[in-house]
Amino acid sequence: MDMLYNILIDPFVQMVDAPDFLIQVVWEGFVAGVLYALIALGFVLIYKASGVFNFAQGIMVVFAGLSLVGLHEKGVPAWLALILAIGIMAILAVCIEKFVMRPLVGQPDIILLMATIGMTYFLIGLGEVIFGGEPKQMITSELGLPTGSTAFEMGERGLVILQHIDIAAAVIALLMVGGLAVFFNRTRIGRALRAVADDHTAALSVGISLNQIWAIVWFAAGIVALATGIMWGARSDVSFALEIVALKALPVLILGGFTSIPGAIIGGLIIGIGEKIGEIYWGSLVGGGIESWLAYVIALIFLLFRPQGLFGEKIIERI
């Protein structure tokens, strides 16, 4: 009976008793969700354009963040370092297209997946050789990003603390999604990209360059990775451990679908908020630490009802 009370009643009593804390939990989940969504966005961009599940997206986040901080450590001013980091991601995109994607055109998906796994380890090694293995502090204030926090008092003991960097992360993520939506829908390259996503052969037949499109989409994923690296790096630090955190995007992709940009955002928020509420209000019943697998449980529950994910394209195969 106690067990049932602890599962079904007590968490909701806690939520009502401390609404400020509930708001804080939801906010933290929202921010985590935004960051998961940013990582998932990188996966979606590449999957949409080339059908490749880019296992290297996590290390691209680390590589982009390290490039930025590493250049600044060498004395490059923050904004110039940011521009150069964008340039590095562009060079990386061209190299990936030329040396990985192009030679593997027409190969089975599993080969492309293995190629991205190989890229992951190559980039880990390259990053460690260039920047060393030590974690680096993100240059948050040098980039003009806000630091500090604002606290809102609620009732006698209630307190909600909002970190300015978290607010900035949410705003940047929204701007990025908006920018990508405009890019995909309103520009010629964006329309070409959608054409490639729909049918490679048809796109080729109307004169669209697959190589160019792939380089652009890997570059866009690189920009998303840089934004993620900056935001996540500001919350902890920029280290190779971030690469593991990037795998949190997997349940987001399962939930939101591999091809949907809105799916990545909504999926990220559901996973972020869901895992935080689950961990805080139900986690202690099983000794805590449920966050790492709860995200997958949430995604699997959704999968039972929508195997293609919330916004993924329904696959209909005629026999």
């Binding site: 933290e28 451990a241 971030l242 593991i244 795998l247 961990e279 202690s284 000794g287 630490g289 966050e291």
Partner: peptide
């Protein structure tokens, strides 16, 4: 507990 995979994602532990 902080799982090894969540070392840089401790907001839940600190909220608790």
């Amino acid at each position: 507990p902080v799982p090894g995979k969540e070392m840089q994602n401790q907001s839940s532990q600190w909220l608790s």
